[in-house]
């Protein structure tokens, strides 16, 4: 079994944060945790190549890094790709997720990585990848690598993969049919009984958790602030140039309103299947309040109405997708120098 491994600058032995900008290096054989990985994968497994890159370089050049890794894995004739484990290192996790997803997609070989729950790579890639729950402590390296190795063996031999709880990976968010001995009513009563008597039980549906979001600091001087309008009401220019879907949208658009004092119904349409869109179609200011904000700008209440408003459609959208859209929009607005957002939601 030929294995290619991805590591960041720290685990790859280049150094700490001062090497975070390091461009990718390709080494022959196993490096650092790769040696233990090779040992745990057992007889016949060989880490033939290790790609090492700095965390900042990696997240700032994800596409280039992924292309390089895919090329190296292809040339090495890799049967398996492993990245990390990354524990709670966020940039490392995002990079590991991206390269694993690319290898899996382009080469069709199994890819396995490991991360802690709070690693943003988990949310971004758990639907597509087997991400072993590494916890936050690097001291668990051996245990985490052995679970990654066990999962890799099962994937390679196309054995059935057990539940997330059994195998120790993050749930993909999929429901799988299974034959069971007891009806739902019986299982439910048993769970209620277990709960009431303090006995252990495992729910069949895990509720989604929403981690607390630290509040951004208040605007110190509104009369100098650049305010942008963002909306999930689906208001788009006539013709819907970005083809934003009215249900489960996968993209967002940014539209020029410089010099516009009032949005007119004839210039816009609404791509949203979740509410009666007649009123917003008639007057888009009801969701994208350019008219009122332009007045506030002229009066000096706000510093500047941002030249572009951002729109998408917030309708039965998977959470992971919504989070991605939010991240992308926030990043763009930050780059454009926006200080605050009025987000109008239906």
């Amino acid at each position: 079994m030929r294995v290619v491994h991805y590591l960041n600058q720290f685990f790859g032995g280049l150094g700490a944060e001062e090497f975070a900008g390091a461009t990718p290096e390709v080494r022959e054989g196993a490096v650092g945790p790769g040696r233990l990985l090779e040992q745990l994968l057992g007889e016949g497994a060989k880490v033939v190549k290790t790609v090492v890159a700095g965390d900042n370089y990696a997240v700032e050049n994800l596409d280039a890094l992924a292309a390089l890794v895919v090329k190296e894995v292809r040339e090495a004739g890799g049967d398996l790709f492993v990245a990390g484990p990354c524990f709670q290192a966020g940039r490392y996790g995002v990079a590991a997720g991206a390269v694993c997803a690319a290898v899996q997609r382009e080469l069709g070989i199994p890819a396995v990585t490991g991360m802690g729950l709070e690693n943003p790579g988990v949310d971004l890639y758990r639907r597509d990848l087997y991400i072993v729950d590494s916890g936050g402590s690097v001291a668990a390296m051996r245990e985490v690598l052995s679970r990654m190795a066990a999962l890799a063996h099962k994937l390679l031999s196309k054995q059935e993969i057990g539940s997330p709880a059994e195998e120790g990976y993050f749930a993909h968010g999929l429901l799988r049919d299974a034959f069971v001995d007891k009806t739902a009513a019986e299982r439910l009563v048993e769970m209620v009984y277990a709960k009431a008597t303090g006995a252990p039980y495992e729910s069949e549906l895990t509720p989604t958790v929403f981690p607390a979001i630290p509040a951004p600091p208040p605007i110190a001087d509104l009369s100098r602030a650049r305010i942008a309008i963002v909306t999930d009401t689906g208001v788009v220019p006539k013709g819907n140039p970005d083809k934003i879907a009215p249900i489960a949208a996968t993209n967002w658009g940014s539209y020029d309103i410089s010099g516009v004092d009032d949005l007119r119904g004839e210039d816009f349409e609404v791509s949203h299947r979740g509410y009666d869109t007649r009123y917003v179609t008639e007057d888009p200011d009801r969701a994208v309040p350019v008219d009122a904000l332009r007045e506030f700008e002229k009066q000096g209440v706000i510093g500047k109405l941002h030249d572009r408003f951002v729109s998408t459609s917030g309708m039965v959208n998977p959470l992971a997708n919504s989070r991605r859209l939010g991240r992308e929009i926030a990043q763009r607005l930050k780059e454009e120098g926006v200080d605050a957002v009025v987000l109008v939601s239906a």
Binding site: R278, Y279, D291, A292
Partner: peptide
């Protein structure tokens, strides 16, 4: 309301715009 978070189809235009200003001032 969901159908016009910053509007009111049943109000005369001037009052509707005042409602929009009021909600935005609250946001500020």
């Amino acid at each position: 309301g969901i159908v016009h978070p910053l509007g009111a189809a049943d109000l005369p235009p001037a009052e509707e715009k005042e409602l929009r200003r009021r909600i935005l001032r609250e946001a500020f």
